[in-house]
Computed example of a mutant assay.
Amino acid sequence: MPPHSFLAFILLLISPVPLAQPLLAQEALPEAPYGQFRKVAVNTGERSRLTVKKNWLGKRRPTQAVPILVLAGHADSQRISPGTRGYAVAVNGARPMQPGMTDETFWNLKTAQRIAKLGRQRGLNIRFYDPGVRTIHNGDDPRTNWSQGKRHAQAGGYALEIHYDAYGRDGLGSGVIPRVYGGQTTIDEHLAREFGSFPWDFRGVLGAPKRGITILEVGKLEGDLENKLRNPDTRDAALNTIADRVVTTMAKALGVPQSFFQIPSLPALPPSPGTTMATQQSLLPSHASAPPPIQRSTPSTQGQGSTQGATGAATPL
Rank of each mutant, 00 (worst) to 15 (best):
D188P: 03
L191A: 05
T214H: 03
H190M: 12
L124C: 05
V205R: 13
V180W: 01
W200F: 13
V218S: 06
V176I: 15
I177T: 13
L118H: 11
G207V: 08
T144D: 05
D130M: 13
A208F: 00
A208W: 01
T105K: 03
G149R: 05
I215M: 12
P131D: 04
P99N: 12
G123L: 11
I136A: 08
H163R: 03
E194Y: 00
Y129W: 02
G149T: 04
S147P: 05
T214L: 04
R169M: 05
V218K: 10
A153Q: 14
G207D: 11
G171S: 08
V205P: 00
T105R: 09
Q184L: 00
F195L: 10
L216C: 08
A116V: 10
D103F: 09
K117Y: 11
T102K: 10
R193E: 13
G204D: 14
F128V: 08
D201T: 05
R143I: 01
Y167F: 15
G182R: 01
I187E: 01
V176P: 07
A153S: 15
V205G: 00
R211M: 11
N108L: 09
P142C: 00
K110G: 00
L216Q: 12
I115A: 08
K110H: 13
Y181A: 15
G119H: 07
F195K: 06
E217L: 12
G175S: 05
F198I: 08
T214Q: 02
P142M: 01
P99S: 13
W107F: 15
D170M: 11
R114A: 09
E194F: 00
G219Q: 10
P199G: 10
D140R: 12
Y167C: 08
I162S: 08
K110V: 03
A208V: 00
R151D: 05
R203M: 12
G149Y: 01
D165K: 02
D165R: 03
Y181D: 07
W146Y: 12
R193D: 13
A112S: 15
R120V: 09
I187P: 01
I187Y: 02
I213E: 04
R179K: 14
G182D: 01
P131L: 02
G175V: 09
E194H: 04
G183A: 07
